[in-house]
Simulated scan of single mutants.
Amino acid sequence: MSTLLTLLDALDDRPQAGELRERTYQALGDAVVDVGCGSGRAVGELAARGIRALGVDADPAMVEVAAGRWPAGEFRVADATALPLDDGSVTGYRADKVLHVVSEPGLAIAEGRRVLAPGGRAVLTGQDWDTVVIDSDDPVRTRSIVHTRADGMPHPRIARRYRNLLLDNGFTDVTVEVHTLVWTDAGALPVLANLGGDGAWLAEQDIRAREDRLFVAVPMFLAAGTRAG
């Protein structure tokens, strides 16, 4: 879990990631469930604005971290397909960087529709793991690292299906945006290590970071829709 937490912090600390979170908070209303809440940052930021925010995560250790970091928020251990909420009890549903590891993403979105009140807003964000862009002296090795990491996940390309997932579950006014996170410094190294890079390949990226020649870009997809009445 510590490796995952380091990766989440590396992602969430980027100014561009903060801007993206702000975008996801728009029009969520006054009662929000954050599915796959991770370290709890979104729940903490929403709670600070007076919004009733519940963060759920399948990992008890992550929920413990979130509760320790953001005591103003509420956190529960729960699966994305079985939320501890009544029908129509929230005005906003947020799933950030989680659907690629959910066993049945379609059921998770159906569960999101269940807990949303009519007119409520669902927001899905995450990366398509095949579209990570890395400048490297060894493009063949880089391509292999990216695709091997993607192939080890249950749903590495789920982000390109966000729009259809929402439409399939009866959401209306569905929109899709792309926001790209860019690293040109050592902050990218935890991300690169998580991809599976090691040895000479990761050493090259470390040198690039020290010489101000590193470039990593991760397109983040944001889809949103309204729960029809």
Results as ranks from 00 to 15, higher is better:
119 G>V: 03
108 A>L: 05
60 P>Q: 10
124 L>E: 04
213 R>M: 07
174 V>K: 04
203 A>N: 14
91 T>V: 08
96 D>V: 12
82 A>H: 11
82 A>D: 12
19 E>A: 14
17 A>R: 06
152 G>A: 08
204 E>Q: 15
110 A>W: 01
170 G>D: 09
213 R>T: 01
189 L>G: 02
208 R>V: 00
202 L>P: 03
147 H>G: 06
90 V>A: 07
28 L>I: 07
80 A>L: 06
147 H>I: 04
196 G>Y: 08
196 G>Q: 12
81 T>R: 15
177 E>Q: 14
172 T>G: 05
110 A>V: 03
53 A>H: 03
52 R>Y: 01
142 T>Q: 14
134 I>A: 13
69 R>P: 11
200 A>K: 15
209 A>N: 01
106 G>K: 13
92 G>Q: 06
219 P>N: 14
191 V>L: 15
81 T>H: 08
158 I>T: 03
8 L>F: 01
114 R>P: 05
104 E>M: 05
90 V>L: 07
92 G>D: 02
67 A>K: 11
136 S>F: 02
217 A>P: 08
149 R>Y: 13
209 A>R: 00
28 L>S: 09
156 P>W: 02
5 L>W: 08
105 P>Q: 09
210 R>W: 08
146 V>S: 07
110 A>L: 04
150 A>P: 13
174 V>M: 07
51 I>T: 04
29 G>M: 10
182 V>P: 00
164 N>Q: 15
4 L>H: 14
228 A>E: 07
108 A>H: 04
45 E>Q: 05
133 V>P: 09
96 D>P: 00
123 V>T: 15
77 V>C: 12
101 V>N: 00
111 E>I: 08
72 A>N: 11
141 R>V: 11
96 D>S: 15
31 A>W: 04
224 A>G: 13
196 G>E: 10
214 L>A: 09
115 V>I: 06
6 T>D: 10
175 T>E: 03
151 D>F: 02
63 V>K: 13
82 A>R: 15
207 I>Y: 00
65 V>L: 04
158 I>K: 10
186 A>E: 02
140 V>E: 08
73 G>L: 05
144 S>E: 15
215 F>S: 15
178 V>N: 09
126 G>E: 01
224 A>Q: 13
63 V>E: 04
98 V>N: 07
53 A>W: 01
84 P>K: 08
162 Y>S: 07
121 R>I: 03
111 E>M: 11
60 P>H: 07
39 S>L: 00
96 D>R: 10
162 Y>H: 12
117 A>W: 04
77 V>R: 14
118 P>S: 06
114 R>W: 02
